[in-house]
């Protein structure tokens, strides 16, 4: 299942290429040097090279990026929002990981 497919949906669990349909790719764009690649959407392409070309035409018609990544949606493993104990709970109770946990006198400089 791809990262952006709803679990209850009809397509869930199907192989990525429904008969005759080009595989789905997720597209990531680096907006400019110094920034991370960011997910912008998806597209269909027969192969990796075509996916790059389509990504350029669909997602960067106005200087939106200096670099593109494409990856088959079926290759992405995502955390599940359905897990009863939230995946992210372990980070919730570790307040000592934040700088504000520590009391430092106000007159100590540069802290």
């Amino acid at each position: 299942m791809s990262a952006e497919t709803s679990p209850g949906s009809a397509a869930a669990g199907k192989t990525p290429a429904t008969r005759g349909e080009w595989p789905l790719y997720e597209v990531f764009v680096r907006g400019k040097r110094g920034l991370n690649h960011v997910h912008v959407g998806s597209l269909h392409a027969a192969d990796d090279q075509m996916a790059i070309h389509h990504a350029r035409d669909v997602y960067t018609r106005r200087n939106e990026g200096v670099s593109l990544w494409v990856v088959r949606s079926s290759s992405i493993t995502a955390s599940s929002p359905d897990e009863k104990d939230p995946m992210f709970a372990p980070s919730g109770d570790k307040v000592y990981r934040h700088p504000t946990f520590y009391d430092i006198p106000a007159d100590v400089p540069h802290m």
């Binding site: 952006e4 209850g8 397509a11 869930a12 005759g20 789905l24 959407g41 669909v58």
Partner: peptide
């Protein structure tokens, strides 16, 4: 054409296929 593709891409996240 691009706008159509952005939107089909959004519809696909709901489980509809492009075809």
């Amino acid at each position: 054409a691009g706008h159509g593709l952005y939107l089909y891409s959004a519809a696909e996240t709901l489980g509809a296929t492009r075809n």
